[in-house]
């Protein structure tokens, strides 16, 4: 049986850990609220951009821009969005596992890997060559400028034909408890489907259609990447919050058991002492 001193020491250390996990939970919760707002706020732009591009696409020449070019897929790029830091449950582990499965399933085509987030980078950089890595994006609220950087590199790789398709794998923020791991095809941009409800038959083009389209497409890619990064950040914070909540609860349970144990040991010691005194008195 552990001594009283050992138990006290353990209780103290568990209590300290609990303080930390509780603080981390609070921080994650506060940041999550803001991250959630940002996801919601970013949706109108992404949505309008998609419909705008759809309207344009009906009029402009399809093959007029490298980002619209459909090529036979020989080499794809997988952009894996993980978190920069751990202590967020299975968030990163799930992503890394899914990425590995993706790589195995698509072993017949060559796959280049681009890592966004330190965790994914650290895992894959020892195993294979990374075509790009971005870390530290999630330390603060995600900036649009960071999304621009990532998007620009993706566009370059696609534009100079190093890759023929780009997938993005990330965790979508669905609910607090269950982020959803998704893989989305970013490039080539799929033909806009759905009915052309309000798309007018003809536009006045202030600039040549090809020129406008050429400027819209990169913006579209940036908006998509930005939205995906925001989603990932919100999902990461949600995961961290639930993980830290569980950890705090576990600590509470552990403390209860330890305190009970401590009291038992203490009581046993007292009882033993009394017996000693009593039997000492009785012997006289």
């Amino acid at each position: 049986m552990a001594s009283i001193l050992d138990l006290r020491r353990r209780i103290r250390s568990v209590r300290n850990t609990q303080k930390i996990t509780r603080a981390m939970k609070m921080v994650a919760a506060a940041r999550l609220r803001r991250a959630q707002d940002r996801v919601v706020n970013a949706r109108p732009y992404a949505r309008q951009m998609r419909s705008f591009l759809g309207n344009l696409g009906r009029h402009a020449e399809k093959s007029s821009h490298p980002l619209l070019a459909q090529r036979p897929v020989r080499r794809t790029l997988l952009a894996l969005v993980t978190a920069d830091r751990g202590l967020c449950g299975a968030f990163n582990a799930n992503l890394i596992r899914a990425a590995q499965r993706h790589l195995q399933e698509h072993a017949d085509t060559e796959t280049a890997l681009l890592a966004v987030g330190r965790k994914g980078r650290d895992y894959f950089r020892k195993k294979r060559k990374l075509d790009g890595e971005y870390t530290g994006l999630f330390q603060r609220p995600v900036q649009f400028a960071s999304a621009e950087q990532v998007a620009t590199q993706i566009e370059m790789l696609y534009g100079d034909k190093s890759v023929d398709a780009v997938d993005v794998m990330y965790q979508q923020f669905k609910t607090l408890l269950s982020p959803k791991l998704v893989t989305e095809r970013l490039l080539p941009i799929e033909e806009p489907t759905g009915p052309a409800e309000e798309a007018p038959t003809d536009y006045i083009w202030e600039q040549p259609p090809e020129e406008i389209l050429g400027h819209v497409l990169p913006r579209y890619v940036e908006a998509e990447v930005y939205r995906e990064l925001l989603e990932s950040q919100a999902a990461e914070l949600a995961s961290r919050m639930t993980a830290m909540d569980t950890a705090t609860n576990n600590a509470v349970e552990l403390l209860e058991t330890l305190t009970l144990q401590l009291n038992r040991v203490r009581q046993a010691a007292i009882t033993k002492e009394i017996i000693e005194i009593v039997s000492g008195a009785a012997a006289q």
Binding site: L56, P200, Y203, I204, W205, E206, Q207
Partner: peptide
């Protein structure tokens, strides 16, 4: 402020796109 000059838009304007 359009790229090729300032534009005034009134209701019922013909469909237009510009940078």
């Amino acid at each position: 402020p359009g790229k090729s000059g300032r534009m005034g838009i009134l209701p019922g304007h013909a469909p237009l796109v510009s940078e």
